[in-house]
């Protein structure tokens, strides 16, 4: 039975590029914040504005790049981003995921992801989902900047619905559970406390030089 997850479904934005790196998702000057929020206005800052942004700056005074899809009002409420291969490569900065989340993106769809970025998504309740090249191409080809289209995601059955198409996607059960139930990963790992302690004790006997 089709079980659409409303949270992860909605209208989408296409960024038809490969190797979108985390320096583009959130440029370095915004990493000086010691918080996890407030990055949304600076998502893709270098592409979204025509001037150089600084931290704590009012965005209303800035020169907007009207040609960049993220500034198109039709897509202001989009919560899905579709992009090409190796999305999120480069720096490990989790600020990239915080910026996407802050902007309102809940699902990132790409042909492939860089490892660290992929992990960071699920730790912040974002779904990162891989489709085949032919499937991504179909979405890119039909994308139209003059009208927002929707993608529906059935997280439980791992099916993406786009127009008349149904695309199956891979997702491990634990990540799915995290997204659906909002699991506390540290809490879950701390349930292994006895095992960690016992490992550590044996390990220290074998490798005493690693302990001061």
């Amino acid at each position: 039975m089709k079980q659409i997850s409303n949270e992860f479904s909605g209208t989408f934005i296409c960024l038809d590029k490969s190797n979108v790196d985390t320096d583009q998702i959130i440029p370095k000057q915004f990493l000086k914040s010691i918080k996890k929020t407030g990055f949304g206005d600076n998502l893709f800052d270098g592409w979204r504005y025509l001037d150089e942004g600084t931290i704590d700056q009012e965005t209303s005074s800035r020169m907007v790049n009207k040609d960049f899809i993220f500034n198109n009002k039709l897509f202001a409420d989009s919560n899905i981003l579709v992009s090409g291969e190796n999305f999120g490569c480069g720096s490990s900065r989790e600020h990239a995921v915080w910026a996407l989340k802050d902007f309102g993106i809940k699902t990132v769809i790409a042909e492939s992801f860089a490892d660290i970025f992929y992990n960071n998504c699920f730790k912040n309740g974002l779904l990162a989902l891989c489709l085949k090249k032919s499937e991504i191409s179909k979405i890119f080809e039909n994308f139209n900047e003059n009208s927002a289209q929707s993608i529906e995601i059935d997280l439980i059955n791992q099916v993406l619905y786009y127009g008349d198409s149904e695309f199956k996607f891979e997702l491990d059960d634990y990540k799915k559970k995290c997204l659906l139930e909002g699991l506390d990963e540290i809490g879950a790992s701390l349930k292994f406390t006895d095992q960690i302690k016992s490992f550590e004790k044996n390990y220290q006997i074998k490798n005493p030089w690693l302990f001061k």
């Binding site: 996890k36 900065r93 992990n119 990963e185």
Partner: peptide, 18 residues
């Protein structure tokens, strides 16, 4: 391995990485 900030917190808390 390079890790994200959530993982930094996880390693601080548990001495382990998932």
């Amino acid at each position: 391995m390079g890790i994200g900030t959530s993982e930094v917190e996880h390693v601080l808390a548990t001495q382990c990485l998932i």
